[in-house]
């Protein structure tokens, strides 16, 4: 039986019409959400601070988070970092009616000690980015606006 994927938005953060962060879950390797929930103290604060900054529209500092636009094989990937902790995900535009909205869907947690990101993790994230089931799961949480009826009576 195929895994039942789920997606949940990051809680306790500012609601934004331009950017969002959430966790893709429901498969053995989609551990970012579960690991994030175990973070406490400084580690949680560091990640949440970085996530707030990205949600507010910042695109750096890259020591905290960055995309992989210059890597042609992992253009959609994104990472939040603190010390050896890495939360890998991908960026997407789940609102077909609002392409300016960008979502960071976090997928995989890894620990990292080398300078370069682990390409194996990025490969897996990129696969989830193109997974149709994942795309459907994510887009289902966003409800398109209802078309407006006439505001006057004939």
């Amino acid at each position: 039986m195929p895994p039942t994927l789920t997606f949940r938005l990051l809680s306790k953060c500012r609601a934004s019409t331009r950017r969002g962060i959430g966790f893709l879950e429901g498969h053995g390797e989609l551990n970012a959400g579960a690991i994030f929930e175990t973070f406490t103290g400084t580690v949680e604060r560091e990640f949440r601070s970085s996530m707030d900054q990205w949600l507010d529209g910042a695109n750096g500092p890259s020591r905290r988070f960055h995309n992989f636009k210059s890597d042609k094989d992992h253009r959609n990937c994104f990472v939040f970092k603190h010390k050896q902790h890495r939360l890998y995900g991908f960026l997407c535009h789940p609102k077909y009616w609002d392409n300016s909205f960008q979502l960071c869907s976090l997928c995989i947690y890894a620990t990292k000690n080398e300078f370069e990101s682990d390409r194996a993790e990025l490969d897996r994230v990129e696969q989830w980015c193109h997974n149709l089931g994942a795309g459907g799961t994510i887009s289902r949480i966003y409800i398109p606006p209802q078309p407006r009826g006439p505001t006057w009576k004939n």
Partner: peptide, 10 residues
């Protein structure tokens, strides 16, 4: 759709 309103900020 999940709602984030009325939840205390971290």
């Amino acid at each position: 759709m999940e709602k984030l309103k009325n939840v205390a900020h971290w």
